[in-house]
Design a protein around this nucleic acid. Structure first.
Lengths: 195, 195
DNA sequence: AATTGCATGTAAGGAGTTACATGATTAA
DNA sequence: TTAATCATGTAACTCCTTACATGCAATT
């Protein structure tokens, strides 16, 4: 009985955001990818069916005017939908079951050649750096257009930045440790970089 | 066609670890829960079927002697299994699709009362602190028994510690920011705590 | 004698992904 | 005209979890 579905609440949340402008599935997908991609992902195969279900439950409501030109269905959140959203938001956030493949491969490092591990870490480093840059760019963007964005998005961006930076630093240290191990130095313990 | 299953490789990896002592499903589950729980989780409903499949593929091999007393089936990794494990370890680690429910609820914070958000953050803080303590305890344990543990486990513990600490610090700052917002201060931006 | 821990497993069910299908509209 | 983008949707498939079932052994 897998964890209960979160997609409905992502949709309700986004439709409830500033202005409460009705949005189509396509637009929701774009917002997810562009704005909250550093902590959330959704696929179309999930969005469209949920959209229909939410409409059937009257938590969202398809826009009356059929939007001349393209065939787009924009949905708006209903009062009932807002109630459901708020109830969910008030509940304790479920903690994701940890599953970090990079760490796992590192843990089994004795079965691998060190340069391979260093490669994995470098790839992770690059990805984290890209993510960090994106968060920082967003941060200045949000800082400028404070009218458009909620102050809460700054909180979440800070999370992305803090975690990315920590991860980056750890990757650097780990690469250094692995290089030492490789060059014969029997380093049994990574240098304690803590204060 | 969901992401390919990682459980087989967790099992192969653990069976391939120091000593290559054969282990039962029950023991594997305990090792996962006790030693790598800060970055990986497995359920019995996954372990036992995979164990059978791996045995059928001859990547692992059930122990000959039936272990008098209890009915336990211990498996050892085969040479073929080691090849499979190494091939997987050498491949690029897949990055998990991000899905952080705490951050999501924070992002939709305008639909919630601030004290509720603070509660979420405090719960997260407590959990992160517990995780951090566990990693640190393990770190000293591994440091003492260096013969028993690989130096790679120190690398992964450092990851757990670094990430927990960053998360903890972020949570503290966020709680402070929310308190300011609550007490009327129109704080539009969290205090930039970066150097 | 009863409870706890050891130990292996199965059944049901949902979440979520990838990949494909379909078609309209706009820009080159 | 061709390609890219807009836009919605479905099908297949699998991972994974929860919950239950079963029984032996050791302890209290």
């Amino acid at each position: 009985m897998a964890r209960t579905q979160r997609t409905p609440f992502v949709i309700l949340g986004l439709l409830g955001l500033s202005g409460r402008e009705p949005r189509s599935g396509y637009e929701i997908k774009k917002v997810v990818d562009n704005i909250i991609s550093h902590f959330w992902a959704e696929s179309n195969g999930q969005i469209y069916p949920v959209l229909k279900r939410l409409a059937a439950q009257e938590l969202i409501c398809p826009e009356a005017r059929p939007a001349k030109g393209r065939k787009t269905i924009r949905y708006a959140i209903t009062p009932k939908g807002q109630v459901a959203l708020r109830a969910w938001l008030a509940g304790p956030p479920e903690v994701a079951r940890p599953r970090d493949e990079l760490i796992l491969k590192l843990f089994f490092g004795s079965e691998t050649e060190i340069p391979v591990l260093i490669g994995h870490l470098q790839a992770h480093h690059a990805a984290a750096e890209a993510g960090l840059a994106k968060c920082k760019a967003w941060q200045t963007e949000v800082g400028k257009l404070q009218a458009k964005y909620s102050p809460f998005s700054l909180l979440t961006l800070r999370a992305g930045i803090a975690l990315s930076e920590a991860s980056l630093k750890w990757a650097d240290e780990s690469i250094a440790t692995l290089r030492q191990m490789e060059s014969g130095g029997k380093v049994q313990r990574p240098p304690s970089a803590q204060k």
